[in-house]
Structure formats: C-alpha cells, structure tokens
C-alpha cells in the first residue's frame, strides 16, 4: 500500500470498516511509514478533542425556560 492509498482509506481504517486484507495492508504500511502514522494519530486526536469539547448543553437559564414552555405546550395538547 502507498501513502495515497492509506490516506484514502484512513477514515475507513479508523472506523474499522476495512476488510481483513486491507486492514492488514494498512497496518503494514503504518508500521513502516512515520508520516502516515502521524496523520493517523493526529486525526484520531482531532476527533477525540472535538468529542471532548463538543457536548455543550443549552445554557442553563435558556434550557429551563425552554423546558417549561414545551412542557406546557405538551400537556395542553391532552385531547
């Protein structure tokens, strides 16, 4: 496998969507190619950082108000 192919398959590799054969080829390439190893690691780290940061909730005051409004609307709809 060449670097360009590794790059093409990178997300599938991360998501474990490659078949056995391609996975092995990718692993072999990664074992010998420092650059691709770095791209893989930093891509995974990128995803990790966003996952850590990305789950912010609605600001508390806003959330509470929204809950009340929607709850009222929900309960008023009783047939």
């Amino acid at each position: 496998m060449k670097c360009e192919e590794l790059l093409t398959y990178l997300s599938d590799y991360i998501d474990q969507n490659l078949d056995e054969e391609l996975t092995e080829e990718a692993q072999n390439h990664l074992a010998t190619c420092q650059n691709c190893r770095v791209v893989l690691d930093t891509t995974q780290q990128t995803i990790f950082l966003y996952r850590k940061q990305g789950t912010r909730n609605i600001p508390a005051g806003r959330r509470q108000r929204l809950f009340k409004q929607l709850e009222t609307a929900f309960l008023e709809k009783i047939a």
């Binding site: 789950t55 912010r56 609605i58 959330r63 929204l66 809950f67």
Partner: peptide
C-alpha cells in the same frame, strides 16, 4: 401525554438538536 415521557424526550434530544442548529446558525 405522560410528563415523564416529555422530560425524557427533552433530556435526550434538546441539547443535541440545539448543538446542531447552533453550528449551522451561530445564534442562540
């Protein structure tokens, strides 16, 4: 119209939907 079901729905999805809309619209 079970109130607990509403709470559950709200707790499960409101923040997710808000984040998606926020990322597209940028306005709280």
């Amino acid at each position: 119209r079970n109130p607990e079901a509403f709470s559950y729905l709200f707790e499960t999805y409101s923040d997710k939907i808000y984040r998606l809309a926020m990322s597209l619209l940028g306005s709280e």
